[in-house]
Simulated scan of single mutants.
Amino acid sequence: MFDRLREDVRTARETDPAAKSSAEVLLYAGLHAVWAYRLAHWLWTRDSHFAARLVSQFTRFLTGVEIHPGADLGRRVFVDHGMGVVIGETAEVGDDVAMYHGVTLGGDDPRPVKRHPTVGDRVTLGANATLVGDITIGDDASVGAGAVVVDDVPPGATVVGNPAEVVDGDETEAAETADSVDEGREPEPVATDVDASATADDADGDANDDDEAAATPPEPPACCGAAGAS
């Protein structure tokens, strides 16, 4: 158990650049919420549902973070700031996940079924991101601040907006660069068939004129012609 506690403290220090010491990290509400969830989840899995919910609600009162005892959180989950975070009963969160204030893993089905998101390993959930329904967020994905996600997110993808859409910064930048180059380049002249035919006709005409000039002998001078006639 103490190994898990030290692991969580180390994760908080590595994830939060504002953390100056381990003692300071021990004051983090998000860290308290995760630790209290571990206790509540332990009680929940042993059918002590009332006691588990009591711990969960008391933790919500103290930290502003509400994690249902039935949710399944992996190792090294870090909740930064924490206020307003809500994680539903059937949510599944992988290892090394970082989430910021206002994140919601909500359900979309009134029946007691799998109705909350499944979040993979090493996922980042931005502030006020809302994930709804039985969807899957792939490993190493990132959800932008304020995004509303209602569909699966591929591994390694970044989604933003409402509704959230996948964005790829590298491809977008390359396309913009190509467009700017094309706009700055002057179009090269293209010879049409009509122009080519006209050029060929002109060349043939010049050649014919030269042939005719060579085939027709020059007229004799007037004086010579008069002498010969006489």
Rank of each mutant, 00 (worst) to 15 (best):
D201P: 03
V85G: 01
Y37P: 07
D3M: 01
H68A: 02
V34N: 07
V148W: 00
D170A: 13
D47V: 04
R13I: 06
A91H: 08
A214G: 08
D139V: 11
L39A: 14
D139H: 03
A214I: 12
D16C: 02
V149L: 01
I87N: 07
G138E: 00
Y37T: 07
T216H: 11
A145R: 02
D139Y: 07
S22F: 04
A174N: 09
G156R: 01
F58V: 03
E173M: 15
S48W: 12
D72S: 08
V55S: 13
L5N: 13
D168S: 03
A71D: 15
A52N: 01
R60I: 02
A229G: 10
T216L: 13
A196Q: 01
E14S: 03
M99C: 10
S22K: 05
D139Q: 05
D80E: 04
R75L: 14
T177L: 15
G30S: 12
G120P: 04
H68K: 00
D108S: 01
G106I: 13
L131M: 05
E219F: 08
L131V: 06
A71M: 11
D206S: 10
P154V: 12
K114Y: 12
P189C: 09
D210Q: 08
D179S: 11
A127L: 06
E14H: 02
D151A: 00
A98E: 03
V93M: 09
E183R: 11
G30E: 07
W44V: 13
G70N: 07
P155V: 08
G94V: 08
S56T: 08
L27M: 06
S22E: 07
A40G: 13
A164R: 02
V167I: 15
A145G: 03
E24N: 03
S22N: 08
H41S: 10
T216E: 14
S48G: 12
V160H: 04
M1H: 10
D182G: 14
E66N: 10
T158H: 00
G120L: 11
E165N: 11
V143T: 11
D108W: 10
A229R: 04
G138V: 09
G126M: 09
G82Y: 00
D211P: 02
G64H: 10
D3K: 00
G106D: 15
F78L: 02
R6C: 10
A191Y: 10
G102F: 03
A98P: 05
T136C: 05
A157L: 05
D140G: 04
S230V: 11
D152I: 00
E92D: 02
V119Y: 11
V119W: 12
G138M: 02
R38F: 11
D182V: 10
G88V: 05
V113N: 11
T45H: 15
Y37L: 05
F50H: 09
